[in-house]
Amino acid sequence: MMTPSDGPLLVVDDLHTVFHTPRGEVRAVDGVSFQVAAGETLGLVGESGSGKSVLGRTVMGLIATGPATTVSGQVLLDGRDVHALKPGQRRQLWGPEIGMVFQDPMTSLNPVKRVGTHLTETLRRHLHCSRKEATERAVDLLNQVGIPEPVRRLTQYPHELSGGMRQRVVIATALACDPRLLIADEPTTALDVTVQKQILDLLASLVSERTMAMILISHDLGAVAGRTDRVQVMYAGRTVEAGPTRTVFDSPDHPYTDALLASIPQLSDQPHTVLRTIEGNPPDMTRPPRGCRFGPRCGRADDTCTDLMPALVAVPDGPARQVACHHPLLSIESLEPNAPLTEAGHGR
């Protein structure tokens, strides 16, 4: 087994999550790879149906091979394959190793249990604390996530708290056992703008304080832009582009990333600026296109794109930049703009 210093904390290699539905196979995650090191934040962005949430849950082991689901590929957390573990062993990971924050804080909390119970339950089960010790630590955790009057809050029920406060409780629960990896799936989507900023600030400071690794899953490109070190853009179950957040957002290489960024209204634009849109709809995931999945909606697509699935390859457009496109929008002239980057995609 590796020690933490040997390499990245989390290695995801060629991960596939396939749901077998009556309408056919849905390849929700179709060959995604990435790594996250301790203290690093990775953003997973994409629109609904891009597979980002399924990816997050598969990484965590919440979605695993079962009667209607097939997971293949590897998820190595500190050298251990999450999907090779028995369900009981996997459950041991949730809390001490991987913490998770979901979108809707109301449904993440049990409505008939007090706030304190959510925290002490986790502490007692995983860290085998005594009742008294667990309560003390729970107060401490609520303090850390910025909840005023923590002692009083422990005896309150989730419905007595505001949405932002509930999300802070969820974060406190996720952090109770000091996980090394935090997966935050749309943690601020249900919250107001001013609260959203508070929660994102809180997550960022906790990550740097504890040198935790974090995966921030979001459809909000603005939220990801300022809070992540690297970003991975998903479309129809595949990674279309990956790289350091700032360079990806400043000069996107993939036409989809470019179009997505252009479709967001900017505060600096004049009122009534016509927004760029992406024509068409995302593909039906039971029958995805044979070649590039974005091909049918892409202005740069040609026959190569229809026939050949582009592989995610390194591009010389900056350090650690990767793109899966036959005709990327490279800002460096050295590459022939129309030459396909690879001879054969690794698509099926």
């Binding site: 910025g146 508070q198 600030d201 832009a225 809070r227 957040t245």
Partner: peptide, 11 residues
């Protein structure tokens, strides 16, 4: 946001 230190604030 990336350029400034995130300060945890009280709710």
């Amino acid at each position: 946001d990336a350029d400034r230190e995130a300060e945890p604030t009280t709710a």
